[in-house]
Each structure stands twice: as C-alpha cells, then as structure tokens.
C-alpha cells in the first residue's frame, strides 16, 4: 500500500517528497537499465516546481534517476512521449499509462521491443480541484495532504479536515479498471488499495443522459463557448498521435481555426470519435483543460460506448487488433437499416 507511505511534512518539504521503498526499488531498476545500456532514456516523474505537483522526467542522465518519485500527484500519462523519443525507452507506468502504451503498440506507433515498462501499482491520484473545493482554499494555500487508504487529511490555514479518500480522487480513478499494469517488464510488487465509487465516477454523464437532446446540446454549446482552442487536451492525449490533425488541414478545411463554439465543439466531438478504442479513460484531457470543460464526460461516454457495443477494452491485450482496424461479421445490429 503505497498511499500510506506518502506523508509530506509541510509546504517546503513536500517539494522533496519522501522516498518510499517503492521509489527506492524503482530508482534502482531504472538506474540499472540506464547503466547497463538496456535503454537510452528513462521516462518517469520528478517533483514539480509547485506544491503538490510533479513533472515528467525524460532523461538519459543516471544522476537524475534519484529524482524519480511515486506519489498521488503523478498525473501525466507518460505514454504520450513514447512515439517521439528515439531509441529504447524505459517508462514508468501506472495501470492507465500501461493501457495507453499497449494501445500505441496495437496501433503500431511503437514497437514492444523498444520499450521497457516499469509498472507501478496505483491506488488512485488526487484531484487537486476537489481538494481545493473541500478545503475552501487554493492549491498553494494548502499546507498538507496526507492520503491514506480510507481517508485523506487536508491541512490548510491551521485547520485539519478528514474526508473519505473517494472524495478527493479523480473521477476516472474512481472508475479505474486496471490498477496494476498487465503488460510490464518489471513490476513493483505491491498491492494497490481498491478505492472505487463507480457512481460518482460517471455522475455527470448520467445527469446528462437524463436531459433531453436539446438540453444536452445546449449544455455542450455553453461549455465550448469557453474553449480557447489551446489544444492541450489533444496534445496531452497519448491516443492523439497523428502527424497532422484534421483541425489543421486547410485543403479542405474541416474546422475553422477561429475559436467559436460551433467549431470548438466539432473539434472535440471528432477528436473523441477519432480516439474511440484508443482512449483509456486516463482523464488527462479534462485535468489539463485551463477553462474546466468537463471533457471526460465526452471521452468516458465514448469509452463506455465501445465497451458496450464491441465488448472492447482499450490497451488490455497487446496482441488484440486495434478497435477500428477490426470487425466481426455480425455486430452493432439494428443501427443501420
């Protein structure tokens, strides 16, 4: 249970997070890979420059290995970097990351033999937006977040608050389907705590489904009025590996580059459809959105859709064909006349 091991002891010390046994093991293994020349690069997480943040670490320098951390703030889906990094790569992977890696292999974007997967068990990551809401304070004003399996202690401005862990984990973590990577070369042998709340994991989707089509459209219309087309959702997504995205096509021009809700919505709708069968519900698109558009209410619905219609779970089987390249002779009956 690695959650217990994360006990930052204050605003300054949490930047240098406590080295847990897992971190030690990970550093050892990653160091060995670099030293022996098995890999050219290691991709992992290092402490971020701000409180309760981490940052991707992409390095060929053995001295940097000691910066590798494991804690409940290792948000990024590092699989994103794999197609662009040359040579052989050792990558630290949570369950969801490993699914993205497998999906990239299925889509032949990377070769299995070029990747060394260092699997880590994950009990869920902390959604700072939820913590901020609970604490009534912004991230940098929170002194301490101690995550235990059943509860989380948040200290802010001298006040201590204890809440069930399910209230601070990301929605996608509450619905996680793979806490321990299935595909790996090295795995840290620790169990992960089963912290789940499937209902709140897709609460907004259920609420949207109760609405009429008109209301749902109005909802998304409003949401995409906020969109600033920074493309962070696309850029952070491991499933978006196209050399050139349809939004940037100019002949023909599918979507206007001008930010207006119509085209913002079309962009996101098509992006979601294009990554159907590649999306692993890692939730990164929603986390990085600077204007808080609930993007996971799109991606997760698509994730469930392909699950229901084609009994397909992305990135679970490295030998399975990618969803959109395969077919059954009879399927999806009744939708096409």
């Amino acid at each position: 249970m690695w959650l217990k091991m994360f006990e930052p002891s204050g605003p300054t010390t949490c930047l240098v997070m406590k080295v847990s046994d897992m971190e030690k093991e990970l550093r050892q293994e990653a160091g060995k890979l670099l030293e022996e020349g098995t890999v050219d690069y290691i991709i992992g997480f290092a402490p971020g420059s701000l409180k309760f943040t981490t940052t991707p670490l992409i390095t060929e320098d053995i001295d940097e290995i000691n910066n590798l951390v494991i804690n409940p703030f290792i948000n990024n889906n590092l699989a994103k970097y794999l197609p662009e990094i040359p040579g052989r790569v050792g990558i630290i992977a949570k369950g969801c990351d490993s699914r993205s890696i497998v999906s990239l292999i299925q889509d032949k974007q990377i070769a299995r033999q070029d990747i060394v997967i260092l699997g880590i068990p994950c009990s869920g990551l902390v959604d700072l937006k939820k913590v901020e809401k609970l604490a009534g304070k912004e991230r940098d004003k929170i002194d301490d977040i101690v995550v235990l399996a059943d509860k989380v202690c948040i200290t802010a401005g001298g006040e201590k608050k204890e809440v069930p862990t399910t209230e601070v984990l990301f929605d996608h973590c509450l619905g996680c389907e793979l806490q321990i990577p299935k595909e790996y070369d090295f795995l840290i042998q620790e169990p992960a705590a089963e912290i789940r709340d499937y209902e709140s994991s897709s609460k907004q989707i259920q609420e949207l489904k109760k609405m009429s089509p008109d209301q749902r459209w109005a909802f998304w219309k409003e949401q995409f009025g906020h969109c600033i087309r920074c493309y962070a959702c696309r850029q952070v997504c491991p499933a978006c590996f196209c050399e050139r995205c349809f939004v940037e096509e100019s002949q023909p021009r599918w979507v206007s580059p001008v930010s207006q809700w119509q085209d913002n919505l079309i962009f996101q709708a098509i992006r979601t459809i294009h990554v159907a069968g590649r999306c692993t519900d890692c939730g990164e698109c929603e986390r990085v959105c600077p204007v808080n558009i609930p993007l996971r209410s799109l991606s997760k619905e698509m994730y469930d859709l392909v699950g229901e219609m084609f009994d397909y779970k992305t990135g679970m089987d490295v030998n399975a064909p990618a969803l959109m390249t395969a077919y059954e002779l009879v399927e999806a009956e009744g939708l096409i006349r």
Partner: peptide, 19 residues
C-alpha cells in the same frame, strides 16, 4: 465492416451530444 464500427459509434455519440 470497418465503416460500420465508425458509423455506429458516430451515430451513438452524436445522439449523446444532443443531435
């Protein structure tokens, strides 16, 4: 066959959006 997967997914997803 490939089109079928794409078309039904599109159809279902657009319904969800409110089309």
């Amino acid at each position: 066959y490939r089109a079928r997967r794409r078309i039904v997914v599109t159809k279902k997803f657009l319904e969800y959006l409110g089309v």
